[in-house]
Design a protein around this nucleic acid. Sequence first.
DNA 1: TGATATGTTATCTT
DNA 2: CAAGATAACATATC
Length: 288
Amino acid sequence: MPELPEIETIKRQLEYKIIGKTICSIAVNNPKSFRGEIKEVIGSKIINVDRRAKMLIICLSGNINLLVHLKMSGQLLFKLKTQKSKLKTTTQNSKRKIKKQSLPDKYSRVIITFEDRSQLFFNDVRKFGWVKVVLSSELKVLSSKYGQEPLEKGFTVDYLEKILSKSNKAIKLVLMDQNKIAGLGNIYANEALFLAGIRPARGGRELRNEEIKKLREAIIKILNKGIKYKGSSAKDKGYIQTTGEFGEYQNHFLVYQREGKKCKRCGSIIKKIKLGGRGTFFCPSCQK
DNA sequence: TGATATGTTATCTT
DNA sequence: CAAGATAACATATC
């Protein structure tokens, strides 16, 4: 679930919390969750926090980086030394009980401790995510393989037109292809296509120029909205903020997980299909 | 009990 | 060979 808006939220929260700190120790509770040598980063200072696609980049002194991918169920939680071990999480809808989370817990796969005894917890139920030690030179190569960042200048109508013309796949699958557009995942691809009034199963080549323009605007709009609401903590509650709080975007879903409900635009019933094995939601009436 | 969910990569199929 | 489709990964929840 964590896609561009979720990682961007984490990036913005972490940068003012950890920049300038020195890594004191790293505890790895699940070997697969940490790749590289721990000793290479001990004593390094955090000089920046960045994002590329759905990856968080913690830049360290000495041209070394810690790369974090949350995959489906990863979380990054920050705790000050003065904080008690319980982090409060707000309710997803106000009626539900307040949830509390003690750290570390049984899903804490990697724990980074800084010299001031504050800690960053990498929690991951499904163990797909990872923290990786990467040299800046390697990162450059890696990063170059990803597609355009949709919130940067290079994401033009021409660019979108070009990538769509090259593939016959369903438009939604093209949008989610990280080598074409970096950071869009299932939730925001569904949302953007709804906003643009385009059916997810249509082939990329079918789109008229007018539709491509509309789609580009919808993608940018929906991602900014996702960031505004600090990401979405959907049903399975994988993603949460670094404070332990839920995101808010799930309360503003236009189509995602709205199967059987009325379309917010025209009142028709939202349908669900599968594309590339992933849940795909759309309005059969106003998405053409 | 079995289906479902999810991002990415490996592997199979066309 | 390449594009496309699908399985695999791990685990909780419905």
